[in-house]
Structures are given as structure tokens and as C-alpha cells.
Nucleic acid binder design. Structure first.
Length: 202
DNA sequence: ATGATGATTAACT
DNA sequence: GTTAATCATCATG
């Protein structure tokens, strides 16, 4: 059920970005003082972007390793989470060979489980406005910088190929240019599920 | 030491 | 359509 190691390690970043569409991110937030029960949220990936090491000026790794992007150069299948615009977090899946510095940005999820928890974290928003953006989904899923660099096969963030009772979504994968970047705009490295109402934007 | 920038979002007009 | 919020990183002095 967990995405196998070889999927992370053998696929190219572009292939992985497409392969991740339709799979499920599960986040287990351990019990705290405030919450006595662990809080589990699940979302299906419906939109991704690939960031490559060669010929891609939009990639964080394009100008070498820094403290911030160091995790991008690690093993495929680890999570890379960073702060953007001083206030938002983005979640990526590291891909490609160790030392290359490539990753897949997760841009949108379809909320599957723990919708009430997500809504509370998102200020009471409705289901269609919980995970339809890269920083929205990190907030809804309870991801923090403490999750940076963790193995996605060990948790507390995990990615599964399947989820009980849910079949693979129908419809084509649409390829477009990426969103929100100033360089590398022309590269067709954004992928989303055609008929999903949960993508951040068409 | 200082200034510009950014894989965004929410709240405006 | 525009803009403020807000800070780690990087280029420059």
C-alpha cells in the first residue's frame, strides 16, 4: 500500500510527478496537551509540479545547496518542506538520484479523511477550500517544518498507492506550465487530474 | 549590515 | 484586478 522505494528511486522526477497523481497522503499528528487523540488527515493528490536540476531556473537547487534546500539533495522519497513568503509552507517529495536536487511539489489534494480537522486548521473553511493550493494543504494536513527531511515510508507523513474503498480516479492527466514562478515559466512541468474540482486553478 | 526576492494566500476594489 | 502580510536566503557594500 505504501508507495514502494523503487517507485521513488527509479522514476524520473517528471514521471514521479505524474505517478503521484491519485495517491494518498496520510499525516498522523501525535496527541498533544490540547488534543488527547492523535489527529489523522488523508488527502488524494490531484495536482503536482516537477522541479528539475538541469535547465530549470525555478528549482530551489538551481544555484547549489543551501541550508534551506539541503533536503532536496537527499534520498528520493523524503519530504522537503520549506517556508515561502515568510508565512506559508510548501510540501515536496524529493526525487531523482541522491545529490541531484530534484523534487515534486504537491499543489493540491482532494480531502478524504479528517475533513473536520482540516477545516478547523483552516479557519472553518468549507471542503472545497481546504487543500486546493500548496500552502493551504500544508496547513490543512498539519504539516510543519519539523516534518522536513523525514522518510515518507516511515511517517508521520506517508504516501499510499491505494486507500480502502476508493478506486483510481478516471480522466486524463493534463500537462501545463507551472504556477507562481518568474523563471522557467515556459516548461510544461505541472500535472493535474482533468476532472478534479480540487485543483488550485485551471 | 542592508535590501531584494519569493514554488502564496486572503482580503480587498 | 491589486496588495499586504512576513522572513530565510542570497547578493551586495
Amino acid at each position: 500500500m505504501l508507495i514502494p522505494k523503487k517507485t521513488y528511486e527509479k522514476l524520473s522526477t517528471k514521471q514521479l510527478a505524474r505517478q503521484l497523481l491519485g495517491t494518498f497522503i496520510v499525516v498522523e499528528q501525535s496527541a498533544s496537551n490540547h488534543e488527547s487523540q492523535p489527529q489523522t488527515t488523508v488527502g488524494r493528490i490531484v495536482e503536482t509540479e516537477a522541479y528539475l536540476s538541469r535547465g530549470d531556473p525555478a528549482c530551489h537547487a538551481a544555484r547549489g545547496m543551501t541550508k534551506r534546500n539541503a533536503m532536496m539533495f537527499g534520498r528520493a522519497g523524503t519530504g522537503y518542506i520549506y517556508l515561502i513568503y515568510g508565512m506559508h509552507l510548501c510540501f515536496n517529495v524529493v526525487s531523482g538520484p541522491i545529490g541531484k536536487g530534484e523534487a515534486v511539489l504537491i499543489r493540491a489534494l482532494e480531502p478524504i479523511e479528517g475533513i473536520q480537522i482540516m477545516s478547523a486548521r483552516r479557519g472553518g473553511q468549507k471542503e472545497n477550500n481546504l487543500c486546493n493550493g500548496p500552502a493551504k494543504l500544508t496547513q490543512a494536513m498539519g504539516m510543519t517544518l519539523d516534518h522536513n527531511g523525514l522518510d515518507l515510508r516511515k511517517g508521520p507523513i506517508k504516501i499510499f498507492e491505494k486507500y480502502p474503498g476508493l478506486s483510481l480516479p478516471k480522466g486524463r492527466i493534463i500537462t501545463t506550465t507551472r504556477i507562481g514562478i518568474s523563471k522557467g515559466k515556459e516548461l510544461p512541468l505541472r500535472f493535474y487530474l482533468e476532472n478534479s474540482p480540487h485543483v488550485s486553478r485551471k
